[in-house]
Design a protein around this nucleic acid. Structure first.
Length: 121
DNA sequence: AGCGTGACAAGGT
DNA sequence: GACCTTGCCACGC
């Protein structure tokens, strides 16, 4: 297996990605920041790349900074991610997603669902 | 131990 | 936005 430090790092990245709500998206850099690893966007990509299929991590909600899917258009991976996002109601504008509308932010979470602890329903 | 590669990003133009 | 440069670093060879 991989070294301990690396495993723990990936675990934290996966935990952060799991926090992205359904129907919303986040960028690689944003996940890195939230996981406490500023400037480690590439590591987030690496972590998702080695993700096992059976792990419950919504990898499809992670996009490039410009709001585009990281995979090359036309690949099966691109189509898979796009299909999953569309199924969650995320609308594409060409090959791009409007981050101002679908981007995840803690602030928006609070507006929509209230502060942690008051999220009944 | 280098070196190229890559699910990336920030900053400047 | 686009494009380019620089920073980043795990991984495979």
């Amino acid at each position: 297996m991989s070294p301990m430090g690396t495993d723990e790092t990936y675990r934290r990245i996966y935990a952060t990605v799991r926090a992205i709500p359904r129907g919303r998206v986040a960028t690689y850099g944003q996940i890195a920041d939230l996981a406490g690893m500023p400037r480690r966007a590439r590591l987030v990509g690496r972590a998702l790349q080695v993700l096992e299929d059976d792990q419950p991590v919504p990898w499809h909600r992670v996009l490039r900074a410009g709001g585009r899917i990281a995979f090359t258009r036309g690949t099966s991976q691109y189509r898979e991610q796009r299909a999953r996002l569309s199924e969650e109601g995320v609308v594409f504008d060409g090959d791009r997603i409007d981050l101002a509308r679908y981007g995840w932010s803690d602030a928006l979470d609070r507006i929509l669902w209230g502060p942690p602890g008051e999220r009944e329903r």
